[in-house]
Design a protein around this nucleic acid. Sequence first.
DNA 1: AACAGTTTCAACCGCTTTATC
DNA 2: AGATAAAGCGGTTGAAACTGT
Length: 237
Amino acid sequence: MDEMMKMEYYRLSEKESGSSAAAATIVEEEMGIIRKGAWTEEEDAILANYVSVHGEGHWNSVARCAGLKRSGKSCRLRWLNYLRPNLRHGNMSVEEQVLILHLHLRWGNRWSKIAQELPGRTDNEIKNYWRTRVVKQAKQLNCHVNSKQFRDTLRLLWIPRLLERIHPQTLTLTPSSSMSLHQPSNNSHSLSSTNSASASAEFEAAIWTDEIMDSEFEAAIWTDENICFLQQQLTHI
DNA sequence: AACAGTTTCAACCGCTTTATC
DNA sequence: AGATAAAGCGGTTGAAACTGT
């Protein structure tokens, strides 16, 4: 935090002392001062302008100083999920989808951690993708999304198949990375083996190509053909 | 065209973690 | 060391958009 920010922060904290900020928020909410629901363009502009001048952080203060009738939490979320620069909205590319599948096998529902590996994507977006696409497809295949059966099928068959289609060279990496994809794991909650960290890094690097950042086409990995393939594999695994 | 059912995703909620005093 | 506030996180909800009849 730079000095200007610090000064501003302490000034505001002082202002808020006495009755706590949280208590103030509750009172404001009860009085109908705190707005909820969809953000308007005007509110977006106010928030974006304020953050561009003062920087991120101290969201309760942002809400007050910018004149927004919103909670600090709401301001933070709106900024992180919508207004922040360099965000990518819209359809996920094939590479992004495969990476999500891969990282979820490794980390589970650690959405923010997964989001860190997908530049421009938010944890909320990834979480929504998972729930609306992956969980849905698993249900249609009569599987639980976290079952060993479904996870093994993803890890051993489905992801390699998708990779082969998008980047044929990915599967001819070093033995270590291939192992990380093909080696069955006793631990159903982890893709990892001893060398998995470096192998996974190699895997992720292989998925990401220069064109991904420009990729705008609708990337359908959940095609009838692919789902049929999954269905067949699930009955044999 | 109108309605019902389904899907999507932005936003909220509540809990946990981290930072500060 | 404990209290408090802020930030972060994952789960859930509900309105809008979409699709089928």
